[in-house]
Simulated scan of single mutants.
Amino acid sequence: MLVTGAAGFIGSALCHRLLSPGHRVVGYDDLSRGRRECLPQGVTLVEGDIRDRARFDETLSAIRPDCVIHLAAMHFIPDCIARPHDTLDVNVEGTRRVLERCRGSAVRSFIFASSAAVYAPTEGACVEDTTPLRPMEIYGESKVAAEQLVRAFHEDTGIATSIVRVFNAVGRHETNPHVIPHIFESLRTSDVIALGNIAPRRDYIDTRDVAEALLSVLDRSNGLRVLNVGTGRACSVGDIVESLRRILARPIVVVQEPSRVRETERMLLVADIKKIRRATRWSPRFHLEESLKDLVSAYGL
């Protein structure tokens, strides 16, 4: 199978998991954010950009995968806001080119990694078929547009297609300076952390659980499905800091940094995961505190 964005945050965790049942895995990554050293032995890496038609077509023709898992994207929100043209080019046009190459190929299953950012702000859990899609920024807009392309691909080809809306991933090998790696990098040298708004609540899911969810979707792929991948539990950055005070037994102090406060903020983003549980029998295994303890070990704290 072929995994785009394989050397990235979720991609590297997925590749580790895919090797366990004996899949032959080829990764495709331009290494603009991903890191080659995060990939396990046994994964063949092709260095390339998904927008490079010749390179991607050559790769697809050479390996003839029966499944493509498309993770490659620009997804660090500040970068996306600063570079809207690049965001649309990679996330929408890049996806279009991947889908074009999959038509008429050996591919029989396609999994697209979308995002919780597609949802409208809501006071409850996001449900795949009823919560409106109304993104708050360009990243979410790019994912809505890409989802439309993926739906059209399924309708035209009949290839088994899954759209998975991943909530806030947490774990080792983060490739973007999101809030959790920022917290851990700060704690390496100080008990003081500069943060923005620490009240909004998010659904943090371990990358090992995301990988397991994607594998369960792959094993039961048929038709067109849209599935949330989260835990169904929400917590704030303030809650995370409090957990780390307890885990580390350190007097961690938060200082608000104005540059880190977003102009518009979504106060709650949490998944309803009943649909994926029914469809695949998957459930998350790692509580956020377990993920934090694993990161404490990874960062040597």
Rank of each mutant, 00 (worst) to 15 (best):
C126L: 07
S32H: 04
A82Q: 09
L187P: 13
P121D: 15
I198F: 01
L214E: 06
A113P: 02
R246F: 03
A106E: 13
V43W: 13
L292F: 12
R165V: 04
M1F: 05
R17W: 03
L244D: 06
A145S: 13
V270R: 04
G5E: 10
E37R: 15
V237H: 03
V144H: 09
D79L: 08
D30H: 08
H85I: 04
V92S: 02
S115D: 07
G22F: 09
F9Y: 15
T44K: 14
G27A: 00
L301M: 11
E263L: 08
I50F: 03
D86I: 00
E58W: 06
D239M: 11
H75P: 00
E185L: 05
V296N: 03
P21E: 02
M74W: 04
E147Q: 06
I205N: 07
G5Q: 10
V296G: 01
K274C: 02
I198C: 03
A169V: 09
R36L: 12
G171N: 14
V296Q: 00
T264C: 06
V210R: 14
P84S: 11
A145F: 05
L268D: 10
P258F: 05
R64N: 04
I205D: 06
E265N: 11
G158A: 08
I69A: 09
S221N: 14
A234D: 13
A120L: 07
R96D: 02
V166I: 15
I77E: 10
T161N: 09
T59D: 05
I138R: 08
A249H: 15
T280Y: 01
Q41S: 15
A72N: 01
V46H: 12
E58V: 02
E141G: 04
V255E: 07
L215I: 09
H85D: 09
S297V: 15
R51C: 12
R165T: 05
T175Q: 14
D129L: 10
